[in-house]
Design a protein around this nucleic acid. Structure first.
Lengths: 219, 219, 219, 219
DNA sequence: TATGAATGAGTTTTCATTCAT
DNA sequence: AATGAATGAAAACTCATTCAT
C-alpha cells in the first residue's frame, strides 16, 4: 500500500504518476512492465517510486485492488438490485460495463489481465482475490434472483456465477472488440474508434447478452 | 516455424524438447518463460534452440498455433456437427473440452494465456490469430444451427459466438477450478486433484453450461 | 565532530540518537550501516542527522574516537600503574576489559571492527588512529615495567606492545566467545548468555592470559 | 563453488579474473567490493561473472575458503610437528607466516578481514568456519606439545589456542606493519616497502614472538 | 550440427545527501 | 531547527542472442 508520502504529494503530480503507472501496467504484463519506463515518462527520479511504494509489486497491488476498482466504481456507480428488478439491474450493469470498457479501456485491460493463468506466483494470488470479490457479489445477486422468482430454481448459483461472469466479462469484451475491429491496445490510441461505438449500438449489444442470460437462467 | 533440422531430430529428443518447452510456457508468461530453463531441463546446449527455431517468439508461436492445437485436436477429436444434431455436438464438445482441461492442464493453460490483453505486441498478434481461428469455426456451426432451426433466427451468430466461447472457455474453466478448489498451477502438481473430478461430475457441470446456452440461444 | 546543535539537543533525544547509532554500527559494517535505519528507529527526520553531523563518516568518527572510548573509560576506569605493581595493574585491566566485553558487547564490537583491514580508505585512517592511541599508552606502561624491573630488560616494548595488545584484545575476545559458545551478535540478543560468564569464571580466564604474558615477558 | 565453465577457462584468463577478484576483496570489505569493478578491470562483460559463479557470495566463499588457503598452503608449506620439536615447528610457522604476510599481503588481508565482527550474516558464517579450521589444527598441536613435555601441564589448550593465534595473527601483523611504518594497503603498492623487511629482520621479530609464547607456555 | 562462453542492455532496488519549506 | 521529498549514482543480477569452434 502507498506510503503517507504518496498521499501528501501535490494532486497534479500524484495523478501524473498514477496515470503513467496505469499506462504501463495496461500496456505490458506485470513481468514486462518496467518502473524505469514509468519514471521516465513521469519525469521523476527512479528513487522516487520507492518513496511512494515499497516495491513494484506493492504499486501493482494498489492499482489492481484499490485504484482501478475505485475508478470503476466511480464510473459505473453502484447498481443496487435490492430494490429493483433483477433483470433490470443486470441490464444496467452490462450497459455501464460496456461503457467503462469503451471509455476506460486501460483500466479494463488491467482488470482483464487478472485472468492470465501464467503469471508470477505472487501476482496470481492478487488476481484470484480480485476475481473472487466480484464473483461473491454476483453470487449473492443470483441467490436473491432465485428467491424472488426471477431466476429458475434449478440453477446452481455457485456454478452459474462463472457463466454470467464469462459472458459479461471476456464475452462482452470480445464482442466490443470485434465491433470495433481492433484490439484494446488500438482503442487507447484512437478517440475515433471510441466514438464508433455509440450508445445506441452499445445498447443493442447489451440486449443480446442480457437475452442470452435471461433466457438461459430465467424462470 | 521450426527449421528442417528440428524435424530431423531423433523423435525421443524432439519430444523431450517440446515437452519441456510446454512445461515452461505453461508455468510462466511469455516474458518470464526462460530458454535457459528449457535447455537445462532438456540437457542440451543453449545454442541448439537457435538451430531449431529462429528465436524465442518463433518457438512460442509454433507451440501456440501448431503444436498445442494439434495435441488438442488429437485428444478432443473432430466433432462434426454437419451430420448430427447441433446440441448433441455442442454437448460432446463441452464434455471433451472439460476432459482436456483436466487431463492436460498444461496445454489448456497455454491456450488460456492467449486471452491476456497485456502482453508483448508480437505475442498479442499470435493470440488474436488463435482466437479468431476457433471463433470462425464456431460461427459456421452457429449459422448451420440457425439454418436447421436448432437456434433461434433472431440470434446474430457474429455476436453469439463470443458468448458461447466465453461460457465454454473461461466460464467452464473457472467452474472446474472452483470445483477443485485450486488454481491451474496446483492441478498440475497433483494427480489426486485431477481424479477428484470424475467423469460423472464433469458431465453434470457440462449439462449446466449446455442448458444455459441451449435455453439462451435455442429456437 | 558534532555540531553545536547536537549538544544543544534535549538530553533524552540526544541519548536515544546515540544509542541507536551505536546499535547500527555495532550490527553492520561501516559500509552497510544505514542512516535510514537509525533515523527510523529514533523517530526523527533524515535531514536531522545533517544538522548534527557533517555526514555519515563524521558521525562514525565521533562514535569511534570519542563516544565509545568515553563510555569504555567510564566503565573500565583509569588503571594507573604509576603507583602500583605493573602486573597487578595489568591483571585489573584484563579483568575489566573482559567485563566490558560481556556487559557492553555493542561497544566492544565497534572497537573490534576497527581491526578490519578491508575498509573504506577514510575509515581505515580512523582505525589506525584509534589503535595507535591505545598502543602508545601501553608502550609507556611497558617501559615503566622494564625500568622497575617487572619486565625483562631484553624485551623491546615497541614490539611487545603488539603481542600484549593481541592477547588482551582479539585473544581474550575469542576465548570469551568460545566459552559462551556464541558470536558477538548472539550475545547482544541474550541476557542469559551474558550471565553464563560469571565473575569467577572470568577471573580464571583472565589469569590464564596474565600468566602467559607474565611468564613471557616477566624478568 | 565455481562452475565447470570457470575451470574450463584458458589459464591466462582465469588467472587474470582471480587476481582481480583478490585485488577487489583485499581492498574493500565484502559489502563494498563490487563485481562491476572486477569485470571492468579484467575487461570482460558483467554477465560473465555469473557464468563462473552463482553470485557474489559464491565467488567470495570460494576465494576465502578454497583459493586463498590453497595459495597460502602452497607458499607456507605444511609444517609437520609430529616428527620435530614443537618449538622448532612453531618458529618455522611464524617465520613463514611473516614471509607470507610480506610477500602476499593481499591474500593475508582477505584472511584477516575474516576477523571483522560487523559483517553480513552470511559472510560471518564463512568467517567463523575459516577461523575454527585453523584453531582446531593448532589445538591438536598444543595437545601434542603438552604430551611431549614441551608445554606446561597446567596450560589449557582450548584457551591457549586463542592467545597463540592472536600473537601469531594480528599481533605479528601489527608488528610487521609498524616496522614498515605503513598499513597493508600501502604495502601492496610498494615493492620497496616489501624489501625493507629483509629475512634477517623478519627472523628477529619472529624470535620475539616465539620467546613470548615459549616462556609463557613452556614447561 | 551441436556446443557453450561471451555479451550487454535491461531490470529492481538502496541510500547518502541536498534543499526548499 | 526540523522536516522529508527528491535525487541519481551505483549495486547485483538475468537472459535472449551471437558466434567461433
Amino acid at each position: 500500500m502507498p506510503t503517507p508520502t504518496f498521499f501528501r504529494l501535490p494532486d497534479e503530480k500524484r495523478e501524473r504518476f498514477v496515470d503513467e503507472a496505469i499506462n504501463e501496467f495496461a500496456d505490458r504484463s506485470y513481468a514486462e512492465a518496467s518502473l524505469s519506463q514509468i519514471v521516465k515518462r513521469v519525469g521523476i527520479a527512479k528513487g522516487s517510486v520507492y518513496q511512494y511504494f515499497a516495491d513494484k509489486l506493492d504499486l501493482y497491488r494498489w492499482l489492481l485492488i484499490e485504484e482501478v476498482p475505485r475508478r470503476r466504481r466511480e464510473f459505473v456507480g453502484v447498481i443496487d438490485d435490492a430494490d429493483t428488478d433483477f433483470w433490470a439491474a443486470l441490464e444496467t450493469q452490462i450497459e455501464r460495463g460496456m461503457a467503462f470498457l469503451v471509455e476506460h479501456p486501460k483500466l479494463a485491460r488491467i482488470t482483464a489481465a487478472a485472468a492470465d493463468p501464467t503469471a508470477h506466483e505472487e501476482v496470481r494470488g492478487l488476481h484470484r482475490a480480485v476475481c473472487q470479490a466480484g464473483e461473491a457479489e454476483l453470487e449473492r445477486s443470483l441467490e436473491r434472483g432465485i428467491r424472488r422468482g426471477a431466476i429458475s430454481k434449478d440453477v446452481d448459483p455457485k456454478i452459474a456465477v462463472h457463466f454470467v461472469t464469462a459472458i459479461t466479462g471476456p464475452g462482452l469484451t470480445n464482442v466490443v472488440l470485434q465491433e470495433l475491429g481492433a484490439d484494446l491496445h488500438e482503442i487507447l490510441a484512437s478517440d475515433e474508434l471510441r466514438r464508433k461505438l455509440d450508445p445506441r449500438r452499445r445498447r443493442r449489444l447489451a440486449k443480446q447478452a442480457l437475452l442470452l442470460i435471461q433466457r438461459g437462467l430465467g424462470a
